[in-house]
Structure formats: structure tokens, C-alpha cells
Simulated assay, not measured.
Amino acid sequence: MTAIYIDADACPVKDEAAKVAARHQLVVTFVSNGGLRPSRDPMVRHVVVPAGADAADDWIVDHAAENDVAVTADIPLAARLIEKGVHVLGPSGRAFTPNTIGMAVAMRDLKQHLRETGEIKGYNPGFSARDRSAFLSALDQIVRRAMRSSKE
């Protein structure tokens, strides 16, 4: 059965992901270093990993399986999950696929270099109601695709 994994530290769409999971009667697992309020819903799991670089990422990679769905803004994590056949979506609603992940990694590396050299600032744009709506639609579509793929 398809499951949804959320890289929950600083994820702006946790509530939206829980709504989509409930609509499809899927378990959603929020993975973080702490600070999340537990849910009473038995279909919502919270996993708190030890503090440390990539602890949440490693947990998600270890537990996600082919045709699961993951939500993350972390490009290296997205690349690791795609290798396992996981359907990956960013909080903006942008899908990461085997065809797009290479460019996403390259752009991430370029932007990191430009920030380190002072060429650009590290500001992220605000997250709007329109972004939330786009994410909801994209997550619903990717969940449906994952569920169809898992039945084949």
C-alpha cells in the first residue's frame, strides 16, 4: 500500500499533506528532529529522529519503498528517493522525476556556490495561498499516480 512521507522540518504544507492522505485513506508519516505536535489521527505518524545532519533524510530513505510518495524541498534527498522508485514532490508542487532531478541537483549546486561567493542572497520567496493550492493539486495527482503504479 502506498504511504506518504513528509520531510517535516520547516515543511510549510504539513496540513495539506495530511488532508490529501486522509482523502485517500493513506498513512502519512512526518519525520523531523522534534517540535511537532502529535496527531490523534491513527493514520498520521510522527517520527522523531536524533539531531544530526541528514538523520531525517536517512530515516525516510530507509523506510520509503517503490511507489510511496515523499514531500521534501531537499534536492539530495529527492535524488536518493527517486533512485528507489519513490514519487517525490517539493512543497511548491514541483515534481522531481528521473528526468528532472539531474537539473535540480545542478541548479542547487550552482545556487549554493553563488551564495557562498556572495553573488546572490539566500532569501526564499514567501509561501502564498496560491502555492498551497498548487501543492494540493499536485500532491493529489502524484498520490493517484503512485496508487495506480502500485497496483500494476
Rank of each mutant, 00 (worst) to 15 (best):
A106S: 08
P42C: 12
V86T: 01
E116K: 09
R37Y: 11
A134N: 07
K84T: 02
V27A: 12
D68G: 07
L77A: 06
A65D: 08
R108P: 01
G34R: 09
A73E: 07
L136A: 15
A95P: 02
I120E: 07
M43H: 13
S128F: 04
R115V: 05
A56W: 03
L139K: 03
G126Y: 09
F135E: 02
W59P: 02
V49P: 08
C11Y: 02
E152H: 02
R94P: 01
E119R: 01
I120W: 09
A73L: 05
F96D: 01
D41I: 06
V86F: 11
F135G: 01
Y5L: 11
D62M: 04
T72V: 00
V143G: 05
K121C: 12
H46L: 12
F127Y: 15
A56T: 04
K84C: 05
R45W: 13
A129P: 02
L110R: 06
D57A: 03
P12N: 09
M1K: 13
A64R: 08
A129F: 02
R40S: 15
V20T: 13
R94H: 14
A65H: 11
L26F: 08
A104R: 08
R37F: 13
I4V: 11
R132D: 05
V61F: 12
K121L: 14
R145V: 06
G35H: 04
P91A: 12
R108W: 04
D68M: 09
Q25P: 03
G90H: 10
S92T: 08
E116T: 01
L81H: 09
A21S: 05
T117G: 10
Q141C: 07
H113T: 05
V71S: 09
R108E: 05
S149D: 15
R115Y: 10
N33M: 05
R132F: 10
N99W: 11
E119I: 00
A129K: 11
I142N: 07
M1R: 13
V49K: 07
A146T: 02
K121M: 14
G52L: 12
D140P: 00
G102C: 13
G34K: 11
T29L: 11
E83D: 13
R144C: 10
K121I: 12
N124L: 14
A17T: 00
